[in-house]
Design a binder for these strands. Sequence first.
RNA 1: GGCGACGUAGCCAAGUGGUAAGGCAGGGGCCUGCAAAGCCCUGAUUCGCGGGUUCGAAUCCCGCCGUCGCCUCCA
Length: 479
Amino acid sequence: MTLRVYNTLTRQKEPFQTIEPGKVRMYVCGPTVYDKAHLGHAVSLLVYDIIRRYLEYKGYDVRHVMNYTDVDDKIINRARELGQDPQALAEHYIQEFEKTMRALGVLWPTVQPRVTQEMDWIQRMVQGLLDKGYAYQVEGNVYFDVTKDEDYGKLSGRRLEDLRAGVRIEPDPNKRHPADFALWKAAKPGEPTWDSPWGPGRPGWHIECSAMNLHHLGEQIDIHGGGQDLIFPHHENEIAQSESYTGKEPFVRYWVHNGMLRVRGEKMSKSLGNFITVDDFLAEHEPDVLRMILLNAHYRSPIDYDEPHVQQAKQALTRLRNAMRPAYPNAPGADDEVLQRLQAQIQATREGFEAAMDDDFNTAAALAHLFELVRAINQARDAGATDAQLQPAQDLLRELGEDVFGLHLQPQAEGASQADIEPLVELLIEVRSELRKQKQFALADLIRDRLAALGIRLEDTPHGTTWRRETREPHANQP
RNA sequence: GGCGACGUAGCCAAGUGGUAAGGCAGGGGCCUGCAAAGCCCUGAUUCGCGGGUUCGAAUCCCGCCGUCGCCUCCA
């Protein structure tokens, strides 16, 4: 099977072929660090985490770059409000963001460049664009001249005439064309500045991503990711800069854009003030719940966030985890017919899962195949399968659910180890069984309830009583 | 005004020409002292609406209605 990926540039799914065989160069737009991460950031982190995990499952070596925008109007303004140094503020929120990444359990990017550490590459590109006539200087500012780029607008499907007719482009007397954008902004009093051939100033927003791509991945890359709201103008401008500078097309082989998270039917955004921070979410729910919400939908679709969806995702996650539970006590072993069915499902699941993921990372369809495996495992367990007989199926569920989807399906008990408490729990179960035989249900239930309060769940089956540590509690992000 | 996406059972959602995956919730049953989990059965003659193409359409075309996004910072 060949992986096919939807490319925003061509608006269709295309066979995935990398520039270098076996290697993927992937760049994902990271945050501007002036505030805590919200759920939209989490969506982006998780979507590209899952994509990366699948690429690695397919055997690719992924070089994954995610930037931090640590120089920007918003940072400067926030720092001014708080009476802080902008760099200190940015550093603080980078640390916060990385806490969030750890809490969400995403694979760590290979490189995490910061604008402030890329000035050489940024200035080199700005100068190159000036030299080639794609940019012009006005009073210490450098602007990109969109009229010099014949195919400007190809990513977002816009034409300059349309833009000119646009209602909300603010007139700027310095710009030759309203759609021209700043590569370098002349210094204003009280702002961080860097020396440059065009005078003191700081980079415009778009140039950083072009420069970091060039520096860390090369002139052409395989995948460029980001939210759909970045298609215009940010990614459009990136293409214009990079292709004008290098003279090579395409700058990016596959433009991948994830759908926006919505709250109460509207996009969640800082300007609308309806955003939920990741910390707020994690104080109530475990990170896998958000992962499940995303897995259940397609990454390009908008996702509505609300409590009912959270509850649905939580239940579905529990069903997945319950399939990892062991065989019944003293399981006699399942017969051949049952085992053959289980074996057939193992094969069908892997094939179905890969076919779904190969089709533009169709996680919802892939997840459906996982649930079919779940049913087969549960059927086999009910039919008396032993742990050894269940293991191949559970191994597959673990591989696809944990390694590829990034979920945590195995109970991860905290505190005392399993081995430490096992003899004690077994003792209590034995005592309780005696009580049940003697119909002393009040006492038996007391033991069950008190153990439940301690996070140990007892379940009576026809074959005996099983126990397990309660799945982990929701926890706030750890330091 | 320009560009674009979407509209599938109570809810989430896959499915882009061959007769509707999966999950959540609900109902019935099995199991059980009870509980929990699990298993079995159960739901759209139908895919926003109206036309058209086709032997055949949720899937293609046209029109309409509705929701949302981008065009300004934004994952």
